[in-house]
């Protein structure tokens, strides 16, 4: 698996998509830092972008990479390698190169502005972490969907739909149900519902870290009360981890049974 990972990482790290993606973050972060010298504000602005963009790009990249390397995958399948190693290696190559673009693109400007050693270091670390996790979650989902669908257009459509669901539709449904059920105590429900969505969960983790949960009103207080505790944090990280492990298990399961 590590051998496959190594070479697909080599391949991807030199692709112009990876460069443009990393370059975008670099320019964007630099201009934000230049416009506002307040590191914590920049972290919040970046958060809003990252929560949409990291999942979207990871989804598209994952699907594209799988379909583009279809013929090469066939060549690999004829080599004395275990099937699951091929697909997990390729997945980790994609997720790894996306994370590298993200970390370098955002990390370099922040490092130049001296984030390390400032009081914002913790918040920044959380932002970096969330971006990496989201890249891993959504590229795994994309790989799983692409493996399941032989038809490229259908695979691409379903993957984008999955992104749309978690990024937009889910929140819409949540808000709708909250406004329809205002009569009932919904703190627990909204807490659980938010934790179930990796994007929402990531947002909450950053906001709590930044200590601006007051912005979220009464629900914020509930989140604070639960996620502020060691147990709550543990649960949050465990759920994020599950969001990576789940699709990866799916990839393994499909890869073992599929005909090429």
């Amino acid at each position: 698996m590590l051998k496959i990972l190594k070479y697909s990482f080599y391949d991807l790290i030199r692709s112009r998509w990876t460069y443009s993606y990393g370059g975008f973050y670099l320019l964007f972060t630099l201009s934000l830092l230049w416009l506002s010298n307040d590191l914590s504000k920049v972290v919040i602005s970046l958060m809003n972008v990252v929560l949409l963009l990291c999942p979207l790009i990871a989804t598209m990249f994952g699907v594209m990479y799988y379909y583009n390397s279809r013929e090469f995958t066939e060549l690999l399948l004829a080599q004395p390698v275990r099937r699951t190693s091929i697909f997990l290696g390729q997945y980790l190559g994609v997720a790894g190169s996306l994370s590298a673009s993200w970390i370098i693109g955002v990390g370099v400007p922040f490092a130049l502005y001296g984030v390390f050693g400032s009081e914002q270091a913790g918040n920044f670390a959380m932002l970096l972490f969330v971006g990496v996790v989201l890249s891993f979650v959504f590229s795994a989902m994309a790989f799983f969907i692409a493996l399941k669908n032989e038809n490229r257009i259908k695979g691409f459509g379903l993957a984008i739909l999955a992104w749309l669901f978690f990024a937009v539709i889910y929140d819409g449904l949540l808000l709708l149900s909250l406004s329809m059920l205002t009569e009932y105590p919904l703190e627990k429900f909204s807490l659980i519902a938010s934790v179930m969505n990796p994007i929402d969960l990531s947002r909450i983790l950053i906001l709590l870290k930044l200590d601006v949960s007051a912005l979220m009103g009464f629900t914020g207080a509930v989140f604070r009360k639960f996620l502020g505790t060691g147990l709550g944090m543990g649960v949050a990280f465990a759920v994020l981890l599950l969001w990576v492990v789940g699709p990866v298990m799916g990839i393994r399961r499909v890869a073992v049974k599929k005909d090429f």
Partner: peptide
């Protein structure tokens, strides 16, 4: 099994390789 594929050389119909790797790699 997969190790038995050491005994087989295979030439696939369509040759497409990772674009950004060199031949030597």
């Amino acid at each position: 099994k997969w190790l038995y594929r050491n005994q087989i050389a295979y030439l696939p119909q369509i040759a497409r390789f990772p674009e950004n790797l060199t031949v030597a790699e």
